[in-house]
């Protein structure tokens, strides 16, 4: 699958899970690998590209790290919107 397509899938999945479960990087990669049939490195690359531009972000809470959709406040802070 194209990187942009994978990224859309990732974003859709994260929106769907928002507020339901804190997703770790691994959870996302596993899920999207199943959906798209791509290998781990390809999915990881797509996810990392999203993180690099602030489309999604790493988060930390309850003693462990996860990946989240950033708040508007965060995007403003980073000068992304």
């Amino acid at each position: 699958m194209e990187q942009t397509e994978i990224q859309e899938k990732i974003f859709a999945y994260m929106q769907q899970m928002k507020g339901k479960k804190k997703l770790k990087e691994k959870d996302i990669i596993k899920k999207i690998m199943e959906e798209s049939g791509d290998d781990k490195d390809t999915v990881k690359k797509a996810l990392r590209a999203m993180i690099d531009v602030g489309k999604v972000m790493y988060s930390y809470g309850g003693g462990s790290s996860s990946v989240e959709i950033p708040s508007e406040e965060y995007l403003k802070e980073k000068g992304l919107i």
């Binding site: 993180i51 690099d52 972000m57 988060s59 930390y60 809470g61 965060y74 980073k78």
Partner: peptide, 17 residues
């Protein structure tokens, strides 16, 4: 307060909120 979510773009660590 418990740590918050802060960091630098692209990284998931190195800053403790």
């Amino acid at each position: 307060k418990h740590g918050g979510i802060v960091g630098v773009l692209g990284y998931g660590g190195g800053v403790i909120g």
